[in-house]
Simulated scan of single mutants.
Amino acid sequence: MLLFIGRRLLVAIPTVILISIFVFFLQKLLPGDPVLALAGEDRNPEILEYLREKYRLNDPLYVQYFQWIGNALRGDLGISLRTQQPVLELIGEKLPVTLQLAVMALVFAMVIGIPAGVISAYYKGTWIDWVANVIALSGLSVPNFWLGIMMILLVSVNLGWLPASGYRPFSDDPLQSIRTMLMPAFVLGTAIAATLMRHTRSAMLSVLQSDYVRTARAKGLREKVVVLRHALKNALVPVVTVITLLFGELLAGAVLTEQIFTIPGFGKLVVDAVFNRDYAVVQGIVLCTAITFILMNILADALYRVLNPRIGAP
Rank of each mutant, 00 (worst) to 15 (best):
160 G>I: 10
3 L>I: 14
310 R>H: 11
147 L>H: 04
209 Q>P: 05
214 R>I: 13
80 S>Y: 06
44 N>T: 10
36 L>W: 06
33 D>K: 04
156 S>R: 03
218 A>Q: 09
131 V>C: 11
115 P>Q: 11
139 G>T: 01
213 V>P: 04
116 A>L: 14
59 D>C: 07
291 I>P: 05
244 T>I: 10
257 T>Q: 04
20 S>L: 05
99 L>Y: 06
86 P>G: 10
82 R>W: 01
128 I>Y: 03
76 D>V: 12
285 I>A: 14
249 E>C: 08
241 T>R: 01
120 S>T: 06
260 I>Q: 02
165 S>I: 11
189 G>S: 04
137 L>H: 09
265 G>E: 01
242 V>G: 01
251 L>Q: 07
156 S>P: 02
178 I>W: 06
183 M>D: 00
31 P>Y: 05
217 R>L: 12
183 M>V: 11
97 V>D: 01
250 L>Q: 02
37 A>G: 12
62 Y>S: 14
219 K>A: 09
202 S>C: 09
23 V>A: 05
165 S>W: 09
277 R>E: 07
81 L>V: 13
133 N>W: 00
138 S>W: 07
308 N>P: 08
8 R>T: 13
207 V>K: 04
129 D>C: 05
45 P>W: 09
237 V>N: 13
92 G>C: 13
140 L>D: 03
251 L>W: 05
259 Q>N: 14
35 V>Q: 02
274 V>R: 12
190 T>H: 00
163 P>D: 07
150 M>D: 06
121 A>T: 06
38 L>S: 10
126 T>P: 07
82 R>L: 07
90 L>S: 10
236 L>N: 00
161 W>H: 03
64 Q>V: 08
72 A>Q: 05
140 L>N: 04
165 S>C: 08
276 N>Q: 15
276 N>W: 09
5 I>W: 04
254 A>V: 08
161 W>I: 05
282 V>Q: 07
47 I>W: 14
113 G>Q: 01
76 D>Q: 10
171 S>Q: 12
11 V>C: 04
186 F>M: 03
220 G>H: 10
66 F>Y: 08
36 L>S: 12
226 V>A: 11
10 L>G: 12
5 I>D: 06
264 P>E: 10
234 N>M: 11
109 A>K: 00
56 R>A: 14
131 V>H: 02
130 W>S: 15
117 G>T: 08
273 A>F: 07
158 N>P: 00
43 R>F: 09
130 W>N: 15
125 G>F: 07
77 L>F: 15
208 L>N: 03
275 F>S: 13
99 L>P: 04
178 I>K: 01
73 L>Q: 06
